[in-house]
Design a protein around this nucleic acid. Structure first.
Ligand SMILES: [Mn+2]
Ligand SMILES: [Mn+2]
Ligand SMILES: [Zn+2]
Ligand SMILES: [Zn+2]
Lengths: 130, 130
DNA sequence: AAATTAACGCAACAATGTTGCTTTTGTTTT
DNA sequence: AAAACAAAAGCAACATTGTTGCGTTAATTT
């Protein structure tokens, strides 16, 4: 059985996530790490963290991919049913943990996951744009 | 004022969309066109069709980008508020024109657009997997 | 038919992500 | 504490996707 190790790079990446209030792209993580490791290493760390349900991936409408820490209290079954907000002005993506959409599906579909992203102006940008 | 022209390549791309029941990626379009034009040309045609609200763009959770024809009856204000379904088995993406999520947002956000993608098994794959 | 310019083809480039292979390092075992 | 083991890192090379500049082609107007 394959065990996971706590390397310095992985710890550093986790610290970056811990400090950030918003979701982060691979490039943003790399910049914050000040090149303490190779970019491939960051990709592999992200893969592991995704696999261990420590972070989740958010694909934005514009094609950018970001990652954010999961803040669930380690349930057995891990479901990401919350929405995300993408600000058109500052391009920050935040988890909206409280926003869970309700919807009616046609028959004969099996839904395993949902991805609900809203875009517009975040509170910060809305206030500064009065 | 810049006018748009009906070129053979653009007409061919539109025909591909017309024939397809599912959303198409740039690569899928290129294959169906049998290289009648350069790949850059397809990108530029897609840009124009997006701009003219003839197609809309769907970014999937896995990072793939697809496009589908808009089937609205040319309203003045164009809103894409329908959901999309992404099949984990056949990787097809379809518009769910009838599925429109309801949700409650926190204050101080201005929502301009929503992007709601569900993934799982489509009716076709669900039936063949019994 | 000639003029105009949107659109095309091609080459070059950029961003993002993946893979193979050797070396390093975290963890377990002796 | 040293040796053994294997996960993870580093590095180079490659793949995919999308963009840009520029000379040429072709759709549309005059
Ligand atoms: Mn989570
Ligand atoms: Mn539409
Ligand atoms: Zn903002
Ligand atoms: Zn399917």
């Amino acid at each position: 059985m394959k065990t996971t190790r706590n390397t310095t790079a992985k710890t550093a990446v986790l610290e970056v996530f811990e400090k950030s209030k918003t979701a982060l792209s691979h490039t943003e993580i790399q910049k914050q790490l000040n090149d303490i490791c190779d970019r491939v290493t960051i990709y592999r760390i992200l893969d592991r963290l995704l696999n261990d349900d420590i972070i989740h991936k958010i694909s934005n409408q514009d094609g950018t991919v970001k990652y954010a820490k999961c803040n669930h209290s380690h349930q057995k079954v891990h479901i990401h049913n919350h929405a995300h907000f993408s600000c058109e002005n500052c391009n920050e993506i935040t988890c909206l943990e409280t926003v869970k959409p309700s919807y009616i599906m046609p028959h004969n579909y099996k839904v395993n996951e949902i991805n609900f992203t809203l875009s517009g102006l975040c509170p910060k940008c809305l206030n500064s744009n009065i």
